[in-house]
């Protein structure tokens, strides 16, 4: 077999490539959002798009999140396949009615008469010293809503593969890009592939402890696993969820049964956070194989403070993950 060509690109480039492909492959796809056209994207993902695709397919909108998402729902009901950019996940709160009351429910309430093939790209995560209103990780909230799908890639390969799946999906998909991962580089094949929604990735195999995480926390988990190996020779298995809904419980539970020790890392607030869902799933399905309680390393129960020193105190870090493993499991 021929060696397949592989390019090293950033997550930003992977998302842009996926969007261009979607626009090229299907006339029904169009992009819509604040400052995605003339300004070329607040995170510079849609650079050159307006020039290449024109204002009908790359639409700058007013700052009005509810009608951005709501009109995308309507356009989807009317036969299009919109890909919307909501500048950051914090602003999704202004579109909550459309996302939760309408996008998630119209297929069910109409008993399948209508479907909503809609992708909502948005930017999640803190750590950039943007203060409390601009530093939230709310994807876990959306993951609790039946009718939605939620994905959060952490590599260029997954960013492209999941975007392909999201755009092809006939359901509303929330596609959360982490603000601090856009520059992450990785290999992406030139050949077509996709990453199915609902499948987690085992980033690193190990027998002593399982670390479950997503998005930027999955990268922290890998760092913590490397540090654990270096320090004590123990092997951590790292699971990158990639999709929060539908959750790949099979991969998580299988690993939990194998290692008997599980740490869940979540950038979001500890109370009511998505990490709790994973903890529950593990104890329900793998209780007899566990050596001890499933542990959370979550964001602090606080609005994100601005100061660099204070901000660093509220988010999980590779060090905190390592400490949690050592303290709870004596590894």
């Amino acid at each position: 077999m021929m060696e397949r060509p592989v390019a090293e690109i950033t997550i930003r480039e992977a998302v842009a490539r996926g969007l261009r492909e979607a626009l090229d492959r299907d006339d029904r796809v169009f992009l819509m959002g604040e400052d995605i056209g003339r300004y070329e994207g607040s995170y510079a993902v849609t650079r050159g798009f307006l020039a290449d695709y024109g204002p009908d397919r790359v639409r700058d909108t007013p700052i009005a999140e509810s009608v951005i998402v709501g009109s995308a729902i309507g356009a989807a009901m009317g036969g299009l396949r919109p890909v919307v950019e909501v500048m950051t996940i914090n602003f999704m709160l202004l579109a909550m009615d459309q996302v939760v009351n309408h996008a998630a429910k119209l297929r069910y309430m109409s008993n399948g008469q209508f479907s909503i093939p809609l992708t909502i790209r948005t930017v999640t995560g803190g750590g950039g010293q943007l203060g409390a209103t601009h530093s939230q990780s709310l994807e876990g909230w959306f993951a609790s809503v039946p009718g939605l799908k939620v994905v959060a890639p952490s590599t260029p390969y997954d960013a492209l593969g999941l975007l392909r799946s999201a755009v092809a999906d006939d359901n509303p998909v929330i596609y959360a890009e982490h603000a601090l991962l856009y520059g992450v580089r990785g290999e992406v094949p030139d050949d077509w592939y996709d990453v199915p929604i609902g499948s987690a990735a085992v980033r690193r195999a190990g027998k002593d402890v399982t670390i479950v995480a997503s998005s930027r926390m999955a990268r922290f988990a890998e760092e913590a696993a490397a540090a654990l190996m270096e320090k004590s020779g123990h092997e951590a298995e790292v699971i990158d969820l990639r999709t929060l809904r539908p959750l790949d419980t099979g991969t998580i539970v299988e690993s939990a049964r194998k290692t008997g020790r599980v740490v869940v890392v979540d950038e979001a607030w500890r109370t009511g956070g998505f990490a709790g869902e994973i903890v529950s799933t593990v104890q329900e399905e793998a209780f007899d194989d566990l050596d001890g309680p499933v542990v959370r390393v979550s964001g602090a129960n606080l609005p994100a403070p601005y100061s660099r020193k204070l901000e660093a105190a509220v988010y999980p870090s590779p060090e905190r993950i390592l400490q949690a493993i050592e303290r709870n499991f004596g590894l």
């Binding site: 509810s66 009608v67 998402v69 709501g70 009109s71 729902i73 309507g74 009317g78 299009l80 309408h102």
Partner: peptide
């Protein structure tokens, strides 16, 4: 009020198509 943005989106599809 929730139906209004959806109506606008249907009209967007009508115009686009």
């Amino acid at each position: 009020g929730g139906q209004l943005p959806i109506a606008v989106g249907l009209a967007l599809a009508v115009k686009y198509l």
